[in-house]
Simulated scan of single mutants.
Amino acid sequence: MKTWIAAAFAAALALPAWGAQMGDDGLYKEPWMRDTFKDLREDLAEANAEGKRLVLFVEQRGCVYCHKMHEEVFSDPEVSDYIGENYFVVQINLHGDTEITDLDGESLSEKAATQKWRVLFTPNIIFLPEEVPEDTSAIEASVAVMPGAFAKGTTIDMFTWVNEKRYLLDNGEDFQRYHARRIRERDDGNTD
């Protein structure tokens, strides 16, 4: 009996304490990720209808950096709540065979799309604008790409920077300057 209790306790500790669950495809599934038909034009329209920004999360099975992001960053309520409130998230499997339709209308597998988008490693987060010309692929239309695993501060700053449309030239603050300012503000205790 004691062995069973110890095993159950160990198994409980191994499960994520946040909202993410491991899917059948070996990728983490956050509560704010959408299960769509992966027609990116439809996803963009739905995101716009909800007043959210479309973002693509490219991940792969066994990715230690994806695990780190889900365990250490997306598990933080500030980050998770912000993403859930402001973003329409579609997950793309770097090596997946599920058919998707890119924003330019091309239908291809997830792995072919990620090759087309020149995604070399995971996680890779692709942020999209509200409007995309008909003949433009997701990577061509992207307003920002977050390649790799980053800490909470960098992640929340990137999601906020995109959501506030600071990438537009007339807003005058590129991401590096914005992020440096936000770090100083956090260090000074002025986070609002």
Rank of each mutant, 00 (worst) to 15 (best):
N124G: 06
D81W: 02
V119G: 12
R181T: 15
N171K: 09
D76T: 01
D97R: 06
C63L: 11
L15S: 10
G62L: 13
K165Q: 11
A113Y: 07
N163V: 15
P129R: 00
P31N: 04
P147N: 12
C66I: 02
I125P: 00
L44G: 01
N190R: 05
D76N: 08
F9M: 11
A10Y: 14
A141M: 02
D187K: 03
M1A: 13
L44K: 04
E78L: 12
R118I: 01
W32R: 02
V73I: 03
D187I: 14
R184I: 15
R166D: 07
F57K: 05
P133Y: 09
L13W: 13
A45N: 13
A113L: 13
D76S: 09
S75T: 05
I100C: 15
K52P: 01
K38N: 08
M146Q: 14
A180H: 06
A8E: 10
S107F: 09
D135F: 06
D135I: 03
F37W: 04
L94S: 06
L13Y: 12
E85Q: 12
L27D: 00
M22N: 04
L40G: 02
E140M: 05
I5A: 14
D135S: 11
G51F: 15
E131F: 10
L40V: 14
G105D: 00
Q176S: 14
A138R: 05
M158R: 14
Q176E: 08
T155Q: 02
H179F: 11
A11W: 11
M22S: 03
N86V: 15
T136K: 14
P31A: 11
F150W: 06
H67Q: 08
E42S: 11
E130T: 05
H70A: 06
V132H: 05
E131V: 05
T136N: 03
A149T: 00
T98C: 02
K68Y: 15
L54K: 01
A11Y: 12
E85I: 08
D104L: 12
F74Y: 13
C66H: 07
Y28M: 02
A47T: 15
K52S: 04
D25I: 14
F9G: 03
V132L: 07
L56Y: 12
A14P: 13
I83R: 06
I139M: 13
L168Y: 09
A45P: 05
I5G: 09
T98K: 04
D192R: 00
V55G: 00
K38I: 03
G51T: 12
M146N: 10
T155F: 03
F88D: 06
K38G: 01
D39G: 07
E78Q: 11
